[in-house]
Amino acid sequence: MAYTDRDIATMDTIINRYPRKRSAIMPLLHFVQAHDGFVTGEGIELVAKKLELETAEVSAVATFYTQYKRKPVGEYHVGVCTNTLCAIMGGDEILAGLKEHLGLENDGVTADGKVSLEHLECNAACDYAPVVMANWEFYDNQNVQSAKDLVDSMRAGNPIPPTRGPNSLPTWKENSAVLAGINDGRAGEGVQAGDPSLLGLKIAKKGSKA
């Protein structure tokens, strides 16, 4: 899809945040994903042009980071944490369950383009294990059934909202735009903290054991 003048203007705003142009490469690649769904050749060439780099320099960066995708992912990209703690607490079973349920291998996308599946490394939510992420929003304390329900709701076009996140689940492209630094105005939605985050505070306030 072609980039409009408005897209280019947005890219310029991103570039202008930095003392040196080249620093904008990562948000611009997120922006390309917001626009194209993944890092397209067109996107790489455009970023190279905007930052006055060679295309090889841009693809070298794009291929280093796991979140930049080389092929389309689903409208809802589901990641199951299978790093040690989550894996042991049930992540392995959740991933296996979802693979079977969706008929997908790791990095696969459903035929309708709605859901893609990936195993993830630690997502800094270990006290909520096992954790599932969708479009990089938290789904805490999952089990095999809840994860299946989640992807079914996505396929039905009405995804269950995240545990600690906005009131409804944004699409992959919408969230990529947030990662590019574009404020979607939804910071106020959702809880300020989940129960485990508050546990120590609660205990301290009670002045006694849990």
Binding site: L120, N123, W136, V178, L179, A187
Partner: peptide
């Protein structure tokens, strides 16, 4: 005179809250 927060990318809602707070 210039400061940066380097936030990991896999936590969109944290990014939202930070971006809004900065604004």
């Amino acid at each position: 005179k210039y400061a940066f927060i380097y936030l990991r990318g896999e936590v969109v809602h944290v990014a939202r809250r930070l971006q809004q707070a900065i604004e």
